[in-house]
Design a protein around this nucleic acid. Sequence first.
DNA 1: GTCGAGCATAAGTGAATCTTAAGCTGGAAC
DNA 2: GTTCCAGCTTAAGATTCACTTATGCTCGAC
Lengths: 290, 290
Amino acid sequence: MLDPRKLHLLRELARRGTIAAVAEAVTFTPSAVSQQLSALEREAGVRLLERTGRTVTLTPAGHLLVEHAHAVLEQLERASAALAAARGGPSGPIRIGAFPTAARVLLPPALAELTGAHPGLVPMVSEIDPADVSAALRAGELDVALVHEYDFVPPVTDASIEAEPLFGEAMYLTDRPSIAAARDDAWITNKPGTLCHTMAIRACQAAGFEPDVRHHVDDFDTVLAFAAAGQGVAIVPRLAATAPPPGVTLTRLPLGRRTLAAFRRGNGEHPAIGAAVAAFRAAVPRLSLR
Amino acid sequence: MLDPRKLHLLRELARRGTIAAVAEAVTFTPSAVSQQLSALEREAGVRLLERTGRTVTLTPAGHLLVEHAHAVLEQLERASAALAAARGGPSGPIRIGAFPTAARVLLPPALAELTGAHPGLVPMVSEIDPADVSAALRAGELDVALVHEYDFVPPVTDASIEAEPLFGEAMYLTDRPSIAAARDDAWITNKPGTLCHTMAIRACQAAGFEPDVRHHVDDFDTVLAFAAAGQGVAIVPRLAATAPPPGVTLTRLPLGRRTLAAFRRGNGEHPAIGAAVAAFRAAVPRLSLR
DNA sequence: GTCGAGCATAAGTGAATCTTAAGCTGGAAC
DNA sequence: GTTCCAGCTTAAGATTCACTTATGCTCGAC
């Protein structure tokens, strides 16, 4: 019988590309991962990995097995969720990931709602950029995460992750009537590697120029303070712009972002996940989105 | 992560009812099964087994998990089948179960066809009564089996077994114009516990009487020889009655049976299974069914 | 009351799986 | 060309896990 643990390692290899990266993700040594994948290959009776020099790639059979690994692991996830439901109402620890703005605006009321409705639940929150969420979910470091996707940035598609939309919001530009009008300005963006940073670059490229990015700041309050101090322009989401500092004018852009709750596929029936998503949804109307 | 091996044990327990029977089926000691199921319960966090005296029954949560066990094991079966397909054409050993008549009439041409088309295949045949087939399939002792189902006998439904119809045939009665006319005769049936035996009893009950079963004989040629010797009447399928001995007249009954190829659900994509079923099907037209 | 079927627990053994340590390979830097 | 380093594998040892054997418990049958 095929071992789901080995299938999980193969799936991680398909996403991460190197055995060392897989080992790091599951906190094993590369040696252990290599041995397990070799054993999987032996049981499979087909070559799954192509060793070319100091790197490995998946063979067609390997890719085929990865698809089946998704299906197997999803069913196991469903079984675990069903057991959690059988244990009774939502209880126990639930690890929640959230991007900084959501952690500040959405989570406080949502967590109050959540623990109020289900005293047995112990939410544990980690700030995390949406770009890293699917890896953390798959690794089991998180159970559910708040992520967003932008118009210009293709959503991170991952066969093993499911996402449920919560709300959308518009984006705003500081002190200029349009992105094109900010062609020659200094720009303030989030740190490289974050989704927000990618979004800003792409939005400027769509307007026909490369932004002159001078500052990398993740906290939108700080971003707005920089803008107020005349240090540059920035694109901020509605939620981060509820109380702009004096002197900063905001122009609504024809650009939106959507916030979603993401979790491992098959885990949606988990009572704690369901309760968390319900609490997120309940907290949405309290946000000032217009 | 839930262990599919333990899920398999739980599923067997659901079907067999006692830990000892499960142990016997998987050739473990009862102790090992007990320990594994205890471990599964611990991981599940819910009671799965109800210990009442010296017997165990599944709790509702246990039954729930059995349903998920089916799904998980089916996906694993699919993955294995995909790997077998990736290994290339059908090859290696394939264990075939068949009821005696099929072994005699259908298998010779089917096996010739099969090994002719796929020289790498090594078919291994075991005679087995349809009533025992699903257990043998689930236990991995067989890969594919020829079974039949009768009009009066509800087919053995098993969520983990899939069956593909091959052909149907009529049943015949020896030396009497109808079953009702054989009310006071001695009867020859197959051995108790076989599907054919159950069918004969039910057919007589449907005609309003309990048969006076005097002989239990599995081989239909012997059955017909007994009938020719005036030792009783019997119901035989068309395939077993191609050359009735002199003195035996056969009357077609408004009663049929269907022959099917059964295999583990999810295993239908396995190239060897697919080739075997195709060979069975190819051999059907050579049978004298009317 | 005794026996036996059925399950659980304790203790021991062997296999599987991990880590540590060492070696191999190929690309990049110099 | 040489050196270095990233990445994978293999070997050897340690730990954990899963099974067997042995024993005890409980309940129902006789």
